[in-house]
Every structure is written in structure tokens, then in C-alpha cells.
């Protein structure tokens, strides 16, 4: 079983990213779980979401305490990383044994994926994380197409899937 923790700022789409990763895993024939941060909306505050991916039925429902992979959205997020693998935007962010970089903001800006003056980075982050998790790009594209109407999000994921580097 693969366990992923996503740190984002409320409004950045971390909860949706968790859902998209779980859906991509389902389309790859796996079992998956997406757990949002429970409680009220948290625009502007730190939001933690979780994803589990497994070949077998997942029966636990608790939040993830020791993730295999940590995904960090915001460059200013000051979170503790306990996992061996981390997916970040730049080297200003926490590092781990294996650090994967994707400039999600640049990918979004190049595609003009902007909402309320800020780049929409979650689909690029999904693309990059999916690569790290060995999910197929076809499943990722299918998941995003289904959940989000704007095709540019599919493109963002596709680019990130290609360019993410360790």
C-alpha cells in the first residue's frame, strides 16, 4: 500500500488533487482512498489531504500518520516531512531522501490556468505525483477529463508527468 499526504493552502485544490489521484488509481485497476481534511472550509489556511493506493481492498479509514510520499503545494508551507519521498515546486521547500521537482506554477501560467490572479497548480501536481506513484498517464487524463471540464488541466498534468525530475 502506498500512502500519500498532500499539504496545500485552502483554495489551491489539494482536496481535489487527492480525489484525482485516487480516481487515476481506480482507472489503473487499483483500490484507492481519498481523505479530505475534515471540518469546515479552510480557504487560506493549511489543508492536509490523504491518498491511499493499494492492489487490495483498503479497510482502514484513519488519517495517514507516516506517509510514503509527501506532496507540498505552497512554497511558504512550513511542514515537517517524515517521508522518504517528497514532491515539491522548487528547492526552497522541504527536501527528503528523494525529492521530485516540478515547477507547477510555471506550467499553469504557460497554459494561462489562472483563477483569481493565482495559477491553478493542482492538476500539474497530480501529473507529477502520478508519475512518482507509477500511475499511467492515460488514467490521469481520464480522471481529470471526468472531474474538470477545462482541457488545459489535462495538458498541465501531462506536461508535469513528463518533466518531473528527481
Amino acid at each position: 500500500m502506498l500512502e500519500i499526504t498532500i499539504y496545500s493552502i485552502g483554495g489551491q485544490g489539494g482536496v481535489t488533487a487527492a480525489r484525482l489521484l485516487a480516481l487515476s488509481a481506480l482507472y489503473d485497476g487499483k483500490y484507492a482512498q481519498a481523505i479530505p481534511q475534515f471540518g469546515p472550509e479552510r480557504r487560506g489556511a493549511l489543508v492536509t489531504s490523504y491518498v491511499r493506493i493499494s492492489d487490495d481492498v483498503i479497510r482502514k479509514h484513519s488519517r495517514i500518520r507516516n506517509p510514503d510520499i509527501t506532496v507540498i503545494f505552497d512554497t511558504k508551507s512550513n511542514v515537517d516531512v517524515s517521508s522518504k519521498v517528497v514532491v515539491v515546486n522548487s528547492n526552497n521547500q522541504p527536501q527528503a531522501e528523494k525529492t521530485w521537482y516540478v515547477d507547477a506554477a510555471k506550467i499553469a501560467l504557460d497554459l494561462n490556468l489562472i483563477k483569481e490572479g493565482l495559477p491553478i497548480i493542482n492538476t500539474a501536481k497530480v501529473g507529477a505525483t502520478a508519475k512518482v506513484c507509477n500511475l499511467t498517464i492515460n488514467s490521469v487524463k481520464k480522471a481529470i477529463k471526468e472531474e474538470i471540464r477545462d482541457e488545459r488541466n489535462v495538458k498541465a498534468a501531462e506536461i508535469a508527468y513528463e518533466v518531473v525530475r528527481c
Binding site: 480525489r19 484507492a32 481519498a34 481523505i35 479530505p36 475534515f38 479509514h61
Partner: peptide, 11 residues
């Protein structure tokens, strides 16, 4: 269970 089941997405 509220949240743990109601809000967790699974297959």
C-alpha cells in the same frame, strides 16, 4: 461514521 466514512472517497 461522520467524516471518516461520509467524506472519505473509496472504491
Amino acid at each position: 461514521d461522520g467524516f471518516q466514512l461520509t467524506h472519505t472517497a473509496e472504491v
